[in-house]
Nucleic acid binder design. Sequence first.
DNA 1: TTGTATGCGTTATCAA
DNA 2: TTGATAACGCATACAA
Lengths: 359, 359
Amino acid sequence: MNQDQPGAVGVAPVTLDDVATHAGVSRQTVSNVLNAPHRVREGTRERVEAAIARLGYQPNRAARALRAQASRMIGYRIEPVHEESLASIHDRFLHALADAGREADHHLLLFTADDPAGELAACARLFRTGGVDGFVLYGIDHGDARPAALLKVGAPFAVFGRTDSDSGHCWADVDNVAGVADAVDHLIERGHRRVGFVGWPEGSGVGDRRAEGWRAALEEHGLLADCQRLDAQTHDTIAAGAAAGAKLLDLSDPPTAIVTVTDTLAVGVMRAAQGRGRVIGEDLAVVGFDDTPTARVLGLSSVRQPIEEVGRVIVEMLLARLPGVPHQPQTAAGPEGRLLRPSLVARGSSAAPYPSSST
Amino acid sequence: MNQDQPGAVGVAPVTLDDVATHAGVSRQTVSNVLNAPHRVREGTRERVEAAIARLGYQPNRAARALRAQASRMIGYRIEPVHEESLASIHDRFLHALADAGREADHHLLLFTADDPAGELAACARLFRTGGVDGFVLYGIDHGDARPAALLKVGAPFAVFGRTDSDSGHCWADVDNVAGVADAVDHLIERGHRRVGFVGWPEGSGVGDRRAEGWRAALEEHGLLADCQRLDAQTHDTIAAGAAAGAKLLDLSDPPTAIVTVTDTLAVGVMRAAQGRGRVIGEDLAVVGFDDTPTARVLGLSSVRQPIEEVGRVIVEMLLARLPGVPHQPQTAAGPEGRLLRPSLVARGSSAAPYPSSST
DNA sequence: TTGTATGCGTTATCAA
DNA sequence: TTGATAACGCATACAA
């Protein structure tokens, strides 16, 4: 009828031998039916398949892993939850990874570590003990020592993000420049001419690229000169965002719209504006980054990262590089890196058109 | 110097045999040093330990799993991210699980499923193939068919939440009654006499218990009669919360404070109140449930679940029931269930004392 | 096309 | 106290 395991209650596991006995063949033939069906005669194959279905046989993972020297596991470090951060990205990413792995019968192995050093130690250990076939690294940015270290360990891996020198490993990243540029375009389209930016301190690849997106978009519209002084840099908390927002709003010629490097900072900016009696979406437009649940609640426009796609792409790349599973012709095992485009989610905070008379 | 693996670059894995050769003993002796140190002479042991350290030997997980019939893996289904929900609980829970497992050298195996049926099929498969030793189930509530089904499969598991008939498996849950009761107590202490409640439709254990907490606390203070009509029930979206809040606020004798079954609904209530020109924390007190990041942003008081502790306790219980790892005397393998107390996080939304003259 | 033998790395049993 | 042997379940090379 169906191929579910027959309602057996805590039964003894079915092995290859059981199936072989049942089908009246050797266990090697059963193995062939599973791993090289073409090498077996049709009649025999059907008999074996029937036995497999009836007994609900499923190959033992440990045995398979031991024999094949491949665990079909992908290691992933789950980081502690930042209480300050609003991000739900991590959750989405994790789900995407697990989902992508499923299709290739690879599962995610989650582990924790207290710091990057601990993470590397854990990675090395997991890899050397055959616990995982490779890793996915999250939140890679300039100066991250993990890629080089993992390379040294000899473990395959793929990362979300980029270091200053991406070499020898594959990566996927969101096009942060384009993301912020889209936000700026959107605001200019609505009539804004003075668009500010609240970013992170210089030095992080992600932050610098988002700032670059702001600058580039303004330049393209010939507005850079007007907005030259309309940016601020600070660390990623609501309070800091409020301070930065206050600074910009208190200028003699303040921006009519502000883009921020994260939703967290956007919330701070909104707070500062409201504290000055300004109505978000009317007196001041704000666009954040990450499309967090909080942004939805507050009606904050935000740049949404295509995390699900990033996860899919990353797993794809990693699996392509794993020895023993040559899905592809493995000519060059696919591209080294992929840049994915985020999309703007426009909400009330940037809804109202702005009278173009603003200089 | 240190016991890290010597900076070997992608070297061949070290096996028990390598260590044995190196130490001039048989591999069985090496195994004994690791698994039954007392059965080996001190001198030999030291020699073997030195070899282990020098070679950076670490036992192969697959081989160990095959031999011991135990993968040292805990299965966990990661659910799709609810776009509507504000919860970060899931993230915290996951981290807690991974962290708790680490201490016992157990790791989390993540998998996805499209629905409960798919989840059960995946569980059965993972368990029968030796991929995991047991499972942790999240979000169990009345009418959940998974526990019974897993029991039938014969897989050990522990759940977060309770069904109507918890039997045969261990569970941990948050004391929802006490959580909401604490919130109500807090409001009464601040002078409120008319405390409303926005909950879920009847039938869910979690929702009903939270409603019960509201009822019980009011009764204890002799205020139940006054507040009898001050509750509403709806599903868990911001819009629904706003509607429910509007209904309560538009009563001829409206509540001065409202407790909600989730932060999501609380946000809705706040929105309804603000739409009516009421200032949260002054004209109306609101307390939510879950202590989401959004609650922090909005200054919303909220009941915080001790998720980290729940995770720890659940893993502890599960491991205690796993065959082969008898940490405890395994008399009765510990208690069947544990109820953990949440704590109220008071913020601005319930800050101001309310003049006790309100009827 | 099918079956036999062997080994993946570990640990349990038993004999020395 | 130590070592030889076998077995966990599967898959590969090779022989029939």
